[in-house]
Design a protein around this nucleic acid. Sequence first.
DNA 1: ATTTAATTGCAAATGGATTGCAAATGGTGT
DNA 2: ACACCATTTGCAATCCATTTGCAATTAAAT
Lengths: 153, 153
Amino acid sequence: MQTEELRCCGDFHERANLDKWIEILQSTGLKLTAPRHVILEFLHKQSHPITNREIYNGISNDCDLASVYRSINLFIKIGFVQQFDFGDGIARFELIEPGLDSHHHHIVCTDCSKVIEIDHCFPNSLTETIEKHTGFSRITHKLEFFGLCSECK
Amino acid sequence: MQTEELRCCGDFHERANLDKWIEILQSTGLKLTAPRHVILEFLHKQSHPITNREIYNGISNDCDLASVYRSINLFIKIGFVQQFDFGDGIARFELIEPGLDSHHHHIVCTDCSKVIEIDHCFPNSLTETIEKHTGFSRITHKLEFFGLCSECK
DNA sequence: ATTTAATTGCAAATGGATTGCAAATGGTGT
DNA sequence: ACACCATTTGCAATCCATTTGCAATTAAAT
Ligand SMILES: [Mn+2]
Ligand SMILES: [Mn+2]
Ligand SMILES: [Zn+2]
Ligand SMILES: [Zn+2]
């Protein structure tokens, strides 16, 4: 991994125009409702994984918090959104381009919660070994790094 | 990683006699109470990470569920217990030998929840690289694998 | 045995997430 | 434009893991 390879969260996601997601949404027979549109729009602007409540606050109560949860769960099911767990019991989400391999990880400051992307996925290269030695198949994983960022050191 | 290197959970933990933990507990000025003793004893018998409720059921209501939570939180603080997150929103714990490097991971069957130990920790070798490229220090991580076990395939 | 701070049991509270249901809505066809 | 209707929403209630306030209990030291 070289320094110049490091990309910020925005470089991973949100490459395409919002219309891309909207078209897919409508082509599936699902409704493009006001809540879904505004949530999609807000996710599209983010550069880091955010919580349901952050979305709710970010769209200034344009829809009910329960609808945020329901929309996000839908977006996960149709592959619009990826969920991350930073260990504090609150799920975090980021918009991804459907169909693309957006698998990656983060490093989170344990002091100020600053997030930086880790664009490589190291455990992938070990999947075959683990398959062979455990008998498991269709192996996935969850990996997040934690530490003190340069400001909090 | 060779096949003969694979160890089950019991080989990792619970090597020492229960007295080892009890002595350390008392030497710290903490009380050896009935709940703590029975919980420690139960943890000592396990071969996989277990939840607070599983402990509570396993000791057949020998103490209150809140006391299980409190004891486990204490055990974490003094380094007796290690916490794992298998992604279902329920914390899991296993007894470790205090002072020893017990850092390891698991692979969990997404169908039957069977757990197998992964005794190597691959991301450790990448910590230095991540430090250099993110500016973070004191880096830790959480990594768990998921998949279908041989019976559920 | 007495003392005292630590610990427990019990019940209530917390907080993220889900859900039942009646009202609202967007997409489709007229 | 309008009517239709399955989907979706808002709202409130609920769920469930975990935490907490407090009075009663208890381990350990004197
Ligand atoms: Mn990201
Ligand atoms: Mn283990
Ligand atoms: Zn920081
Ligand atoms: Zn299985």
